[in-house]
Simulated scan of single mutants.
Amino acid sequence: MERRFYLRQIDSSNPWLVFTAVGVMVIGLLSNWLWLGLSGTLVTLLLSLKIILPSVKEWLSTFLTAQERKTLIGFIAFAIAIAGLFKFLGVYALVGYWLNQIKWDEFGSWADWVGALGQIMIAVLAVYVAWEQYVISRDLTIQQNRITQQQTIDTYFQGISELALNEEGLLEDWPQERSIAEGRTAAILSSVDAGGKAKILRFLSQSRLLTPLRRDGRLGRPIFDGTGGYQEDRLSGVRVIDLGVMLAGTDLHTMDLRWTDLSEANMVRANLQGCDLVRANLARTILVDANLKNADLKGTILFYGSFDAASPRVKNQRPDYRTGEFTGAVVEDVDFTNVKRMSEEQRYYCCSWCGEKARGTIPGGCDGIPNRLNR
């Protein structure tokens, strides 16, 4: 009978085989038998690598692309090459010689150095934690201030509405009520930031509280226009709130002031840089030394009547809204650098009345347009 012998394939990743190799290594270490311990150590190392390498290869294939694997291999090879280059150039020998020349006793013990470094790191960590706490506290303070400001503005809106409207919701303002409304407005405009000022101005403008309204000659009440609103009277109308000098020198840069009625306001040295002034009414507004850099002037009303006949407001001179005489904004020394969408009529008016200093800032130049300000 023919006998057949089969070789059984041994699984190198079998845990029992690994444990056996570890046991041989431990016995060799305990018995101080060099060859037994060394053999067990080498077998354990080879078996562990046999188990670990496939997993490492799979991880690299999963999380790194082919190009990234090549880059990693190249980086490792580069580091090894640099290390070998330093060896052949004698860099390590020079460093060792330099270290041997240092009198380490003069520097104290390594423990002192480590302790000092630890204290420095603790101080740096404390400064970092304190800075983070400051940033968080600052952000919370800013957020709380915004909430408080919005609550203040909402209270102002409610107070002005109750002051100017009767029980039926109709506008019924008397001289004393208008004075109180102006006082409240002046107080809140001086206590809020640029965003809060813009919100207030948009509210007052859209509510027509800044627009001069036609009044009943005896009762002083505003007159309806027959289409659901109040009649506007630029010549002799009365505003519920007259801004006066409330906006002089104010900072409103980059704010949204579209369709706001700022006519006849005193905005000397106001910062309107980057503002959206689309369809805003600036007729008879005093803009001396104002900053209008990068502002959007599309449809902005700077005057009434014809652009070549319009002229800036003059104290004690009655404006003529038909011809435009004395209806224009006072634009002397205004900075018009890079203003957007300025019409030809606006450019002609501004070139005529802004003065020699400001003419150089108007986009498109002022060639052929006379300086009617004469200074």
Rank of each mutant, 00 (worst) to 15 (best):
G159H: 04
L170K: 10
F19Y: 09
E332D: 06
L72E: 11
P212A: 02
G305E: 13
D256M: 10
V24I: 15
T323V: 09
S48D: 01
D251T: 10
D296G: 03
L272V: 08
G90K: 02
L201Q: 12
C275L: 06
I122E: 13
E168L: 06
W98Y: 07
E232D: 06
A83E: 03
A198C: 14
V124H: 09
R318Y: 12
Y348P: 01
L60C: 10
L140P: 00
R269E: 09
V22Q: 06
P363W: 00
G40T: 13
S161T: 10
L287S: 01
L209N: 04
P319Q: 04
I82L: 15
D261R: 05
I241S: 04
G115E: 10
E332A: 08
A83Q: 06
D320R: 07
L47G: 08
L292P: 11
E58Q: 11
Y134W: 12
P212T: 02
G364R: 06
S190R: 15
V288P: 00
D256L: 09
V245D: 09
G118E: 06
G217C: 00
C366A: 10
N14S: 13
G159V: 11
W259Q: 14
F63I: 01
R3S: 13
F203Y: 15
S343G: 07
Q9S: 10
A270R: 04
N316F: 13
C351F: 04
R269P: 01
N32V: 01
E2Q: 12
T71W: 08
A309Q: 15
R284M: 10
I76R: 11
L47C: 05
I27D: 05
D112G: 07
A79L: 14
E264F: 00
A186S: 09
M342L: 13
S343P: 02
T254L: 11
T155P: 00
A181P: 03
R178I: 02
G228F: 06
W259I: 05
N281I: 05
K57S: 13
P175E: 00
S179P: 00
T337G: 00
N338Y: 00
P212R: 00
F303A: 01
M1P: 11
Q273K: 14
D154V: 14
T41D: 02
A283N: 09
E345C: 03
I200L: 15
Q151T: 13
C351A: 13
R359F: 07
S12R: 12
I120F: 15
F5K: 09
A123C: 02
L45N: 03
G274Q: 08
A270C: 06
F203V: 04
Y134G: 04
M267L: 14
A310M: 09
A21V: 14
N316Y: 13
I122V: 15
E177A: 01
M255I: 07
R146D: 11
Q231L: 09
S31M: 08
E2M: 09
G244R: 13
G90V: 02
A81D: 01
I10P: 02
A93H: 05
L210V: 03
S236F: 03
L209I: 03
